[in-house]
Design a binder for these strands. Structure first.
Lengths: 210, 210
DNA sequence: GTCTATAACTCGATAGAC
DNA sequence: GTCTATCGAGTTATAGAC
Protein backbone atom coordinates (compact mmCIF):
# COMPACT_ATOMS: atom_id res chain seq x y z
CA UNK A 1 0.00 0.00 0.00
CA UNK A 2 1.31 3.40 -0.94
CA UNK A 3 -0.71 6.29 0.39
CA UNK A 4 1.90 8.97 -0.13
CA UNK A 5 0.53 12.16 -1.59
CA UNK A 6 2.63 13.21 -4.54
CA UNK A 7 3.06 16.88 -5.35
CA UNK A 8 2.05 18.04 -8.80
CA UNK A 9 2.97 21.35 -10.29
CA UNK A 10 0.10 21.53 -12.80
CA UNK A 11 1.86 23.14 -15.77
CA UNK A 12 4.53 20.44 -15.77
CA UNK A 13 2.23 17.52 -15.08
CA UNK A 14 3.47 14.30 -16.68
CA UNK A 15 6.60 15.91 -18.02
CA UNK A 16 9.72 13.84 -17.48
CA UNK A 17 10.94 16.36 -14.98
CA UNK A 18 7.75 16.00 -12.96
CA UNK A 19 7.86 12.22 -13.11
CA UNK A 20 11.40 12.28 -11.76
CA UNK A 21 10.45 14.72 -9.06
CA UNK A 22 7.50 12.62 -7.95
CA UNK A 23 9.60 9.48 -7.87
CA UNK A 24 12.30 11.26 -5.89
CA UNK A 25 9.69 12.56 -3.50
CA UNK A 26 8.39 9.12 -2.81
CA UNK A 27 11.78 7.50 -2.35
CA UNK A 28 13.43 10.27 -0.33
CA UNK A 29 10.50 10.62 2.06
CA UNK A 30 10.51 6.92 2.79
CA UNK A 31 14.25 6.26 2.92
CA UNK A 32 15.91 9.57 3.68
CA UNK A 33 18.90 11.12 1.96
CA UNK A 34 21.34 8.34 2.82
CA UNK A 35 19.00 5.43 2.26
CA UNK A 36 17.72 6.60 -1.12
CA UNK A 37 19.61 5.46 -4.22
CA UNK A 38 19.55 7.30 -7.54
CA UNK A 39 18.99 3.98 -9.31
CA UNK A 40 15.82 3.37 -7.31
CA UNK A 41 14.50 6.82 -8.14
CA UNK A 42 15.22 6.26 -11.82
CA UNK A 43 13.42 2.91 -11.73
CA UNK A 44 10.40 4.47 -10.05
CA UNK A 45 10.28 7.19 -12.68
CA UNK A 46 10.75 4.66 -15.48
CA UNK A 47 13.78 6.42 -16.95
CA UNK A 48 17.54 6.19 -16.96
CA UNK A 49 19.87 7.25 -14.19
CA UNK A 50 21.65 9.75 -16.41
CA UNK A 51 18.45 11.72 -16.86
CA UNK A 52 18.30 12.44 -13.16
CA UNK A 53 21.53 14.33 -13.48
CA UNK A 54 20.44 16.01 -16.69
CA UNK A 55 17.45 17.55 -14.91
CA UNK A 56 18.75 18.01 -11.37
CA UNK A 57 22.56 17.98 -11.52
CA UNK A 58 23.24 16.16 -8.22
CA UNK A 59 21.56 13.97 -5.67
CA UNK A 60 21.93 16.71 -3.05
CA UNK A 61 20.16 19.29 -5.23
CA UNK A 62 17.34 16.89 -5.98
CA UNK A 63 16.99 16.12 -2.30
CA UNK A 64 16.98 19.79 -1.46
CA UNK A 65 14.09 20.47 -3.81
CA UNK A 66 12.09 17.55 -2.47
CA UNK A 67 12.71 18.55 1.13
CA UNK A 68 11.64 22.13 0.41
CA UNK A 69 8.47 20.89 -1.24
CA UNK A 70 7.67 18.66 1.71
CA UNK A 71 8.14 21.47 4.20
CA UNK A 72 6.25 24.06 2.20
CA UNK A 73 3.40 21.63 1.83
CA UNK A 74 3.19 20.48 5.43
CA UNK A 75 3.35 23.75 7.33
CA UNK A 76 1.04 26.15 5.47
CA UNK A 77 -1.82 23.70 5.73
CA UNK A 78 -1.48 23.74 9.49
CA UNK A 79 -0.93 27.46 9.55
CA UNK A 80 -4.14 28.28 7.71
CA UNK A 81 -6.25 26.31 10.08
CA UNK A 82 -4.53 27.53 13.19
CA UNK A 83 -4.91 31.16 12.16
CA UNK A 84 -8.48 30.82 10.95
CA UNK A 85 -11.29 33.06 12.23
CA UNK A 86 -13.27 30.45 14.14
CA UNK A 87 -14.27 29.73 17.74
CA UNK A 88 -11.68 27.81 19.74
CA UNK A 89 -13.74 24.69 20.26
CA UNK A 90 -14.58 24.37 16.60
CA UNK A 91 -10.98 25.07 15.64
CA UNK A 92 -9.73 22.24 17.82
CA UNK A 93 -12.28 19.84 16.37
CA UNK A 94 -11.39 20.68 12.80
CA UNK A 95 -7.71 20.64 13.57
CA UNK A 96 -7.85 17.10 14.93
CA UNK A 97 -9.93 15.82 12.02
CA UNK A 98 -7.83 17.55 9.41
CA UNK A 99 -4.48 16.74 10.91
CA UNK A 100 -5.15 13.06 11.51
CA UNK A 101 -6.32 12.78 7.90
CA UNK A 102 -3.28 14.64 6.63
CA UNK A 103 -0.78 12.51 8.53
CA UNK A 104 -2.63 9.31 7.65
CA UNK A 105 -2.20 10.14 3.99
CA UNK A 106 1.47 11.04 4.54
CA UNK A 107 2.62 8.86 7.39
CA UNK A 108 6.32 9.19 6.59
CA UNK A 109 6.45 12.95 6.36
CA UNK A 110 6.87 13.87 10.04
CA UNK A 111 9.49 11.16 10.46
CA UNK A 112 11.26 12.42 7.37
CA UNK A 113 11.40 16.00 8.61
CA UNK A 114 12.52 15.15 12.12
CA UNK A 115 14.95 12.45 11.03
CA UNK A 116 16.64 14.50 8.34
CA UNK A 117 17.02 17.49 10.64
CA UNK A 118 18.78 15.21 13.11
CA UNK A 119 21.02 13.64 10.50
CA UNK A 120 21.88 16.73 8.45
CA UNK A 121 21.13 19.78 10.59
CA UNK A 122 23.41 22.05 8.56
CA UNK A 123 21.76 21.48 5.20
CA UNK A 124 18.34 21.74 6.74
CA UNK A 125 18.74 24.96 8.66
CA UNK A 126 20.77 26.60 5.90
CA UNK A 127 18.79 25.72 2.82
CA UNK A 128 15.42 24.24 3.52
CA UNK A 129 13.73 25.96 6.46
CA UNK A 130 10.38 27.46 5.45
CA UNK A 131 9.97 31.10 4.55
CA UNK A 132 6.78 31.41 6.56
CA UNK A 133 6.53 29.22 9.64
CA UNK A 134 3.16 28.92 11.37
CA UNK A 135 2.23 31.76 13.71
CA UNK A 136 0.24 30.24 16.55
CA UNK A 137 -0.19 33.52 18.49
CA UNK A 138 -3.81 33.89 17.54
CA UNK A 139 -4.60 30.40 18.75
CA UNK A 140 -2.77 31.15 21.99
CA UNK A 141 -4.86 34.29 22.52
CA UNK A 142 -8.07 32.37 21.91
CA UNK A 143 -7.08 29.89 24.61
CA UNK A 144 -6.26 32.67 27.04
CA UNK A 145 -9.61 34.33 26.37
CA UNK A 146 -11.49 31.08 26.88
CA UNK A 147 -9.68 30.59 30.17
CA UNK A 148 -10.41 34.14 31.29
CA UNK A 149 -14.07 33.67 30.46
CA UNK A 150 -14.14 30.46 32.45
CA UNK A 151 -15.21 28.45 29.39
CA UNK A 152 -12.26 26.09 29.86
CA UNK A 153 -10.08 25.32 32.81
CA UNK A 154 -6.74 27.11 33.13
CA UNK A 155 -4.06 25.70 30.85
CA UNK A 156 -0.89 26.83 29.15
CA UNK A 157 -1.78 27.49 25.50
CA UNK A 158 1.54 26.18 24.24
CA UNK A 159 1.19 22.94 26.13
CA UNK A 160 -2.34 22.53 24.89
CA UNK A 161 -1.20 22.90 21.29
CA UNK A 162 1.64 20.44 21.81
CA UNK A 163 -0.68 17.97 23.50
CA UNK A 164 -3.09 18.11 20.56
CA UNK A 165 -0.29 17.76 18.03
CA UNK A 166 1.29 14.89 19.94
CA UNK A 167 -1.87 12.84 20.18
CA UNK A 168 -2.61 13.32 16.48
CA UNK A 169 0.83 12.75 15.03
CA UNK A 170 2.65 10.34 17.27
CA UNK A 171 0.45 7.25 17.00
CA UNK A 172 0.59 7.31 13.22
CA UNK A 173 4.29 7.98 13.05
CA UNK A 174 5.09 5.41 15.70
CA UNK A 175 2.85 2.71 14.23
CA UNK A 176 5.53 0.02 14.11
CA UNK A 177 6.52 0.71 17.70
CA UNK A 178 2.93 0.66 18.92
CA UNK A 179 2.46 -2.75 17.40
CA UNK A 180 5.20 -4.02 19.67
CA UNK A 181 4.25 -2.09 22.80
CA UNK A 182 0.56 -2.90 22.61
CA UNK A 183 0.87 -6.32 21.04
CA UNK A 184 -1.50 -5.60 18.17
CA UNK A 185 -1.76 -7.17 14.75
CA UNK A 186 -1.66 -4.97 11.68
CA UNK A 187 -5.45 -5.07 11.32
CA UNK A 188 -6.11 -4.34 14.96
CA UNK A 189 -3.82 -1.34 14.66
CA UNK A 190 -5.69 -0.02 11.63
CA UNK A 191 -9.00 -0.27 13.45
CA UNK A 192 -7.47 1.42 16.44
CA UNK A 193 -6.18 4.33 14.38
CA UNK A 194 -9.61 4.82 12.81
CA UNK A 195 -11.11 5.37 16.26
CA UNK A 196 -8.53 7.99 17.08
CA UNK A 197 -10.26 11.12 15.79
CA UNK A 198 -13.22 10.73 18.11
CA UNK A 199 -11.14 9.51 21.02
CA UNK A 200 -8.67 12.38 20.80
CA UNK A 201 -11.39 14.99 20.56
CA UNK A 202 -13.30 13.67 23.54
CA UNK A 203 -10.10 13.37 25.55
CA UNK A 204 -9.16 16.98 24.84
CA UNK A 205 -12.59 18.38 25.60
CA UNK A 206 -12.77 16.32 28.77
CA UNK A 207 -9.47 17.80 29.87
CA UNK A 208 -10.69 21.32 29.10
CA UNK A 209 -13.92 21.12 31.14
CA UNK A 210 -13.89 23.90 33.74
CA UNK B 1 25.43 18.86 24.23
CA UNK B 2 25.34 15.11 24.16
CA UNK B 3 22.95 13.55 26.63
CA UNK B 4 22.91 10.09 25.11
CA UNK B 5 23.10 7.33 27.67
CA UNK B 6 25.82 4.95 26.76
CA UNK B 7 25.54 1.32 27.73
CA UNK B 8 28.31 -0.09 29.87
CA UNK B 9 28.89 -3.73 30.46
CA UNK B 10 30.83 -3.35 33.72
CA UNK B 11 33.41 -6.08 33.35
CA UNK B 12 34.52 -4.70 30.01
CA UNK B 13 34.44 -1.03 30.99
CA UNK B 14 37.06 1.01 29.13
CA UNK B 15 38.23 -1.93 27.09
CA UNK B 16 38.73 -1.15 23.44
CA UNK B 17 35.75 -3.31 22.63
CA UNK B 18 33.57 -1.27 24.95
CA UNK B 19 34.87 2.02 23.59
CA UNK B 20 34.00 0.88 20.08
CA UNK B 21 30.58 -0.28 21.15
CA UNK B 22 29.82 2.99 22.90
CA UNK B 23 30.94 4.98 19.88
CA UNK B 24 28.86 2.81 17.58
CA UNK B 25 25.88 3.20 19.86
CA UNK B 26 26.12 6.95 19.73
CA UNK B 27 26.60 7.18 15.97
CA UNK B 28 24.06 4.54 14.94
CA UNK B 29 21.34 5.91 17.19
CA UNK B 30 21.78 9.37 15.77
CA UNK B 31 22.30 8.56 12.10
CA UNK B 32 20.79 5.15 11.52
CA UNK B 33 22.31 2.20 9.67
CA UNK B 34 22.66 3.95 6.32
CA UNK B 35 23.77 7.31 7.65
CA UNK B 36 26.44 5.96 9.99
CA UNK B 37 29.93 5.51 8.57
CA UNK B 38 32.51 3.13 10.00
CA UNK B 39 35.11 5.87 9.78
CA UNK B 40 33.02 8.13 11.99
CA UNK B 41 32.59 5.39 14.57
CA UNK B 42 36.33 4.75 14.56
CA UNK B 43 37.01 8.45 15.04
CA UNK B 44 34.59 8.64 17.96
CA UNK B 45 36.25 5.65 19.58
CA UNK B 46 39.70 7.08 18.92
CA UNK B 47 40.94 4.02 17.09
CA UNK B 48 41.47 2.75 13.58
CA UNK B 49 38.82 1.51 11.17
CA UNK B 50 40.43 -1.90 10.91
CA UNK B 51 39.86 -2.51 14.61
CA UNK B 52 36.13 -2.25 14.16
CA UNK B 53 36.28 -5.28 11.93
CA UNK B 54 38.68 -7.08 14.20
CA UNK B 55 36.16 -6.87 17.06
CA UNK B 56 32.83 -6.97 15.26
CA UNK B 57 33.44 -8.52 11.80
CA UNK B 58 30.97 -6.41 9.82
CA UNK B 59 29.00 -3.19 10.02
CA UNK B 60 25.74 -5.16 10.02
CA UNK B 61 26.78 -7.26 13.01
CA UNK B 62 27.86 -4.19 14.93
CA UNK B 63 24.58 -2.52 14.13
CA UNK B 64 22.65 -5.56 15.18
CA UNK B 65 24.29 -5.61 18.59
CA UNK B 66 23.67 -1.93 19.12
CA UNK B 67 20.05 -2.21 18.05
CA UNK B 68 19.46 -5.13 20.38
CA UNK B 69 21.00 -3.23 23.24
CA UNK B 70 18.80 -0.23 22.54
CA UNK B 71 15.63 -2.29 22.42
CA UNK B 72 16.43 -4.38 25.46
CA UNK B 73 17.13 -1.23 27.38
CA UNK B 74 14.05 0.71 26.31
CA UNK B 75 11.24 -1.78 26.66
CA UNK B 76 11.82 -3.63 29.94
CA UNK B 77 11.99 -0.34 31.80
CA UNK B 78 8.54 0.53 30.53
CA UNK B 79 7.25 -2.97 31.09
CA UNK B 80 8.22 -3.08 34.74
CA UNK B 81 6.41 0.11 35.51
CA UNK B 82 3.33 -0.71 33.52
CA UNK B 83 2.96 -4.11 35.16
CA UNK B 84 3.72 -2.87 38.66
CA UNK B 85 1.42 -3.51 41.59
CA UNK B 86 0.29 0.05 42.22
CA UNK B 87 -2.93 2.09 42.07
CA UNK B 88 -3.77 3.45 38.63
CA UNK B 89 -3.41 7.10 39.51
CA UNK B 90 -0.01 6.63 41.06
CA UNK B 91 1.09 4.47 38.17
CA UNK B 92 0.23 7.17 35.67
CA UNK B 93 2.09 9.79 37.67
CA UNK B 94 5.21 7.70 37.95
CA UNK B 95 4.99 6.66 34.34
CA UNK B 96 4.95 10.25 33.11
CA UNK B 97 7.83 11.30 35.36
CA UNK B 98 9.91 8.27 34.55
CA UNK B 99 9.24 8.24 30.86
CA UNK B 100 9.88 11.92 30.25
CA UNK B 101 13.17 11.55 32.09
CA UNK B 102 14.10 8.46 30.13
CA UNK B 103 13.39 10.01 26.74
CA UNK B 104 15.07 13.27 27.70
CA UNK B 105 18.24 11.35 28.38
CA UNK B 106 17.87 9.40 25.11
CA UNK B 107 16.10 11.74 22.74
CA UNK B 108 17.15 9.88 19.58
CA UNK B 109 16.10 6.42 20.67
CA UNK B 110 12.41 6.43 19.72
CA UNK B 111 13.19 7.96 16.35
CA UNK B 112 15.91 5.38 15.83
CA UNK B 113 13.59 2.48 16.54
CA UNK B 114 10.75 3.79 14.40
CA UNK B 115 12.99 4.88 11.54
CA UNK B 116 14.98 1.68 11.36
CA UNK B 117 11.87 -0.49 11.45
CA UNK B 118 10.54 1.51 8.50
CA UNK B 119 13.74 1.27 6.50
CA UNK B 120 14.80 -2.27 7.30
CA UNK B 121 11.73 -4.15 8.53
CA UNK B 122 13.21 -7.57 7.71
CA UNK B 123 16.35 -7.26 9.81
CA UNK B 124 14.39 -5.77 12.65
CA UNK B 125 11.62 -8.29 12.86
CA UNK B 126 13.95 -11.23 12.24
CA UNK B 127 16.88 -10.46 14.47
CA UNK B 128 16.23 -7.66 16.87
CA UNK B 129 12.68 -7.73 18.17
CA UNK B 130 12.63 -8.19 21.94
CA UNK B 131 12.04 -11.56 23.48
CA UNK B 132 9.57 -10.10 25.97
CA UNK B 133 7.52 -7.17 24.73
CA UNK B 134 5.54 -5.17 27.29
CA UNK B 135 2.23 -6.70 28.38
CA UNK B 136 -0.14 -3.84 29.06
CA UNK B 137 -3.14 -6.03 29.95
CA UNK B 138 -2.85 -5.37 33.64
CA UNK B 139 -2.86 -1.63 33.07
CA UNK B 140 -5.90 -2.02 30.83
CA UNK B 141 -7.75 -3.93 33.54
CA UNK B 142 -6.93 -1.28 36.09
CA UNK B 143 -8.43 1.36 33.82
CA UNK B 144 -11.57 -0.69 33.29
CA UNK B 145 -11.95 -1.17 37.03
CA UNK B 146 -11.53 2.52 37.71
CA UNK B 147 -14.17 3.27 35.09
CA UNK B 148 -16.55 0.67 36.55
CA UNK B 149 -16.10 2.16 40.00
CA UNK B 150 -16.81 5.62 38.65
CA UNK B 151 -13.41 6.90 39.79
CA UNK B 152 -12.63 8.09 36.27
CA UNK B 153 -14.82 8.87 33.30
CA UNK B 154 -15.33 6.17 30.66
CA UNK B 155 -12.36 5.85 28.30
CA UNK B 156 -10.76 3.22 26.10
CA UNK B 157 -7.74 1.90 27.98
CA UNK B 158 -5.70 1.55 24.81
CA UNK B 159 -6.34 5.09 23.76
CA UNK B 160 -5.49 6.35 27.21
CA UNK B 161 -2.15 4.57 27.13
CA UNK B 162 -1.40 5.90 23.65
CA UNK B 163 -2.39 9.42 24.69
CA UNK B 164 -0.03 9.29 27.65
CA UNK B 165 2.80 7.89 25.55
CA UNK B 166 2.24 10.44 22.80
CA UNK B 167 2.33 13.44 25.09
CA UNK B 168 5.49 12.20 26.79
CA UNK B 169 7.47 11.07 23.79
CA UNK B 170 6.49 13.21 20.85
CA UNK B 171 7.54 16.66 22.06
CA UNK B 172 11.04 15.47 22.86
CA UNK B 173 11.46 13.48 19.69
CA UNK B 174 10.04 16.27 17.54
CA UNK B 175 12.05 19.00 19.21
CA UNK B 176 13.49 20.41 15.98
CA UNK B 177 10.06 20.51 14.39
CA UNK B 178 8.47 22.17 17.41
CA UNK B 179 11.05 24.91 17.23
CA UNK B 180 9.75 25.72 13.78
CA UNK B 181 6.04 25.28 14.46
CA UNK B 182 6.03 27.27 17.67
CA UNK B 183 8.74 29.72 16.79
CA UNK B 184 10.85 29.08 19.88
CA UNK B 185 14.53 29.56 20.48
CA UNK B 186 16.58 26.66 21.77
CA UNK B 187 16.47 28.00 25.35
CA UNK B 188 12.75 28.66 25.26
CA UNK B 189 12.24 25.11 24.10
CA UNK B 190 14.34 23.70 26.94
CA UNK B 191 12.32 25.63 29.49
CA UNK B 192 9.13 24.48 27.84
CA UNK B 193 10.16 20.83 27.99
CA UNK B 194 11.02 21.17 31.70
CA UNK B 195 7.43 22.20 32.42
CA UNK B 196 6.07 19.20 30.60
CA UNK B 197 5.95 16.66 33.42
CA UNK B 198 3.54 18.72 35.48
CA UNK B 199 1.53 19.90 32.50
CA UNK B 200 1.05 16.42 31.11
CA UNK B 201 0.02 14.99 34.44
CA UNK B 202 -2.53 17.69 35.12
CA UNK B 203 -3.88 17.41 31.57
CA UNK B 204 -4.37 13.68 31.92
CA UNK B 205 -6.01 13.85 35.33
CA UNK B 206 -8.25 16.65 34.15
CA UNK B 207 -9.37 14.49 31.24
CA UNK B 208 -10.06 11.58 33.58
CA UNK B 209 -12.29 13.47 36.05
CA UNK B 210 -15.69 11.72 36.20
C1' DG C 1 16.04 14.66 -24.47
C1' DT C 2 17.33 10.08 -23.78
C1' DC C 3 20.34 6.33 -23.78
C1' DT C 4 24.86 3.29 -23.05
C1' DA C 5 29.23 3.11 -21.30
C1' DT C 6 32.45 4.37 -18.19
C1' DA C 7 34.98 7.37 -15.21
C1' DA C 8 35.51 8.94 -10.37
C1' DC C 9 34.56 8.32 -5.82
C1' DT C 10 32.97 6.51 -1.24
C1' DC C 11 33.12 3.13 1.92
C1' DG C 12 33.21 -1.51 3.91
C1' DA C 13 36.44 -5.04 4.26
C1' DT C 14 41.06 -7.53 4.13
C1' DA C 15 46.23 -8.31 4.05
C1' DG C 16 50.20 -7.96 6.28
C1' DA C 17 53.77 -5.48 9.11
C1' DC C 18 54.72 -4.52 13.83
C1' DG D 1 45.88 -5.91 19.52
C1' DT D 2 46.74 -2.15 16.65
C1' DC D 3 48.20 0.13 12.64
C1' DT D 4 49.02 1.36 7.38
C1' DA D 5 48.00 0.33 2.90
C1' DT D 6 45.04 -1.36 -0.45
C1' DC D 7 41.37 -3.92 -2.69
C1' DG D 8 36.76 -4.34 -4.47
C1' DA D 9 31.76 -3.44 -4.48
C1' DG D 10 28.42 -0.24 -4.93
C1' DT D 11 27.09 4.65 -6.19
C1' DT D 12 27.21 9.16 -7.95
C1' DA D 13 28.37 11.65 -11.88
C1' DT D 14 30.03 12.52 -16.71
C1' DA D 15 31.13 11.66 -21.86
C1' DG D 16 29.48 10.95 -26.00
C1' DA D 17 26.43 8.57 -29.46
C1' DC D 18 21.80 8.92 -31.24
Amino acid sequence: MDNTEKPTTPELADSTEQRIFDAAHQVFVQKGLDGAKMQEIADHAGINKALLHYYFRTKEKLFEMVAKAVINRAFPAVQQLIEADMPLEQKIERFVDFYIDLISRNPFVPLFIIGEINKHPDQFFEKIIPAAPPRPERFFRQVEEAVAEGRIRPISPRHLLVNVLSMCVFPIVARPMLRIVMGMSSQELNLFLKERKEEVKSFIFAALRP
